[in-house]
């Protein structure tokens, strides 16, 4: 781990703030346990992704400007969401006069597991988590941020989440039949293409259930919220946790 203590900002996506505060708490506590000094800039709101993916990127300039102002002074920005991080990196509209600050933010914003493996260089995490865990590879983290190798590409296999979880005592990592297929959340897709979204979610869930997964985890609460919503509607016997919650519990 780096010897100098960098100035880290925690970015908690709006829906995590509102609906999944425990994921925010786990992310914060986890980073602190790993020796980081973390600030949560209190004025933060949203990255603008839901609007941009709906075709209104141009209307997110105010949101992007606010985001840039809030986060520009930090060495690193860490968020427990691949999807929001990808948005900030690739789809924030250019703000005139703030190009340098925006570029700076795009270079120093990291998804949580990416930050742990690539910046903190966490190896051999010690802890215990005696459960059968299935990992949902959210697409924006998977193919956008390249958090794991893609089944379509010819590349050496890797998975940053697996790298962090693999040494936890008792944790059984479950290999799925379709290891990186989309769950069908897709932001507004979840409501505009409701039937498809539900079918895709059911299929993804079935892959975990048929492999006797006890806890389904991932790096994006949006996908997990969607899968959990379907599972709870159909009274499936499976639990859901963000990977920050697992890591934070395991190493305490």
């Amino acid at each position: 781990m780096n010897s100098i203590s960098p100035n880290i900002a925690l970015f908690i996506p709006c829906y995590v703030d509102q609906f999944f505060p425990n994921v925010g708490i786990a992310s914060l506590e986890l980073l602190e346990k790993l020796g980081c000094s973390v600030t949560y800039p209190i004025g933060q709101t949203c990255c603008g992704q839901p609007m941009a993916n709906s075709g209104y990127e141009r209307d997110t300039a105010g949101t992007a400007r606010h985001f840039t102002e809030i986060f520009k002074g930090f060495d690193y920005i860490v968020a427990p969401s691949g999807s929001c991080v990808l948005h900030v990196k690739e789809h924030s509209p250019k703000i005139a006069g703030m190009e340098k600050e925006q570029k700076g933010i795009q270079d120093k914003i990291f998804e949580l597991t990416e930050f742990l493996t690539d910046v903190l260089k966490v190896e051999n995490l010690q802890g215990s988590y005696p459960h059968r865990v299935g990992y949902h590879a959210s697409c924006h983290g998977q193919r956008g941020l390249r958090l794991a190798s893609s089944s379509e590409l010819q590349e050496a296999p890797y998975n940053k989440a697996h790298h962090l979880l693999k040494n936890l005592k008792g944790l059984e990592w479950v290999e799925l039949s379709r290891k990186d297929e989309c769950c069908g959340f897709g932001g507004t897709f979840a409501v505009t293409e409701e039937a498809l979204s539900i079918q895709m979610g059911k299929d993804r869930l079935e892959d975990h259930l048929s492999h006797q997964v006890e806890i389904l985890t991932g790096g994006d609460m949006s996908c997990i919220m969607h899968l959990q919503g379907i599972a709870s509607r159909n009274r499936e016997n499976i639990k859901f946790k963000h990977i920050a919650e697992i890591l934070n519990e395991a190493i305490s």
């Binding site: 956008g144 590409l153 989309c182 959340f185 897709g186 932001g187 505009t192 293409e193 498809l196």
Partner: peptide, 13 residues
């Protein structure tokens, strides 16, 4: 263009 979750598999394949 909205009949997609932007999962990106098409671009990788």
């Amino acid at each position: 263009p909205f009949a997609s979750t932007l999962c990106g598999s098409c671009s990788d394949v």
